[in-house]
Simulated assay, not measured.
Amino acid sequence: MKMQRTTDSLRGHFLIATPAIESGFFKQTVTYICEHGETGAMGVVINKPLDLQLADIFEHLNIQPLLSHDEVSVMAGGPVKVDRGFVLHSPDKTFDATLKVNADVWLTTSKDVLAEIAAGSGPERHLVALGYAGWSAGQLEQEIAANSWLTVAADDKVLFETHVQQKFESAGSLLGIDIRLLSQHAGHS
């Protein structure tokens, strides 16, 4: 008899920080979950811009961009491996190190995706981050049970097209709520 899993995978979902996360890296963040299973979870924060532009990354990697990328912010993807690049993108092309999260979003960690973006021939939609967020086995489930996170199926428009300053509220609206009105104290009756 096959054992039924007690949790469903949150792969391809947003984690929206609740007011229970009062301070620290994850306060008011939206994280796109790329991997979630029995061994843990991995995601990329999509609404925490660094003081760094994509043009700066190209310069650091000695990539000559065809177009200007001075206005494209790089996100702080999480507190793990902050010196490593993670690119969430539309499934236009496969690169050296690509994880197919679902039919609409892939994650690439190899430099070739950045070279293609710089050349103007990369994925149509993309978000570049340094670092990622990781949870050990059962940790994310415990944090959700403690009301630290709300979860909702991710929306590509929020991920790729919504201005970084509106992503938190837009992700909350996917649940039909105004995230700014949540209290940090759970009520029990």
Rank of each mutant, 00 (worst) to 15 (best):
M1D: 13
K2Y: 05
M3N: 14
M3I: 11
M3T: 14
R11T: 15
R11K: 15
H13V: 00
F14N: 04
F14T: 06
F14S: 03
I16A: 11
T18M: 01
T18E: 02
A20S: 08
A20H: 01
I21C: 03
S23F: 04
G24Q: 06
G24L: 07
F25E: 07
F25M: 15
F25H: 11
T29Y: 02
V30Y: 02
T31S: 12
C34G: 06
E35C: 05
G37M: 04
E38P: 13
T39N: 12
N47E: 15
K48M: 12
L50N: 11
L50Q: 11
L52S: 04
A55Q: 15
D56S: 08
D56A: 10
D56C: 04
I57M: 02
I57L: 08
P65S: 05
L67P: 00
S68V: 10
H69S: 13
D70V: 14
D70R: 12
D70N: 15
E71H: 13
V72G: 06
V72D: 10
V74W: 06
M75R: 13
P79W: 05
V80M: 07
V80Q: 01
K81C: 09
R84M: 03
F86Y: 06
V87G: 04
S90D: 03
P91F: 11
D92C: 03
D96R: 09
D96A: 13
L99K: 13
K100H: 14
V105R: 10
V105K: 07
W106C: 09
L107A: 00
T108Q: 10
D112L: 09
V113Y: 11
L114K: 05
L114H: 07
A115V: 11
E116I: 04
E116P: 03
I117Y: 05
A118S: 10
A118K: 06
A119E: 13
G122E: 02
E124K: 08
R125C: 06
H126F: 15
H126N: 08
L127H: 04
V128S: 09
A129W: 03
L130S: 03
L130E: 00
Y132G: 09
Y132H: 14
A133H: 03
G134A: 15
W135G: 01
S136I: 08
G138P: 10
E141V: 07
Q142K: 15
A145F: 09
A146W: 00
N147D: 12
N147L: 02
S148H: 12
S148T: 01
L150S: 10
T151V: 10
V152R: 05
A153G: 09
D155Q: 03
D155H: 06
F160S: 00
E161G: 01
E161R: 11
Q165L: 13
Q165N: 09
Q166L: 15
F168Y: 15
F168C: 08
S170P: 05
S170V: 06
G172P: 12
L174Y: 15
L175V: 11
I177W: 07
I179C: 05
I179N: 08
L182W: 00
Q184E: 08
H185D: 08
A186F: 10
A186R: 09
G187D: 12
G187S: 14
H188C: 08
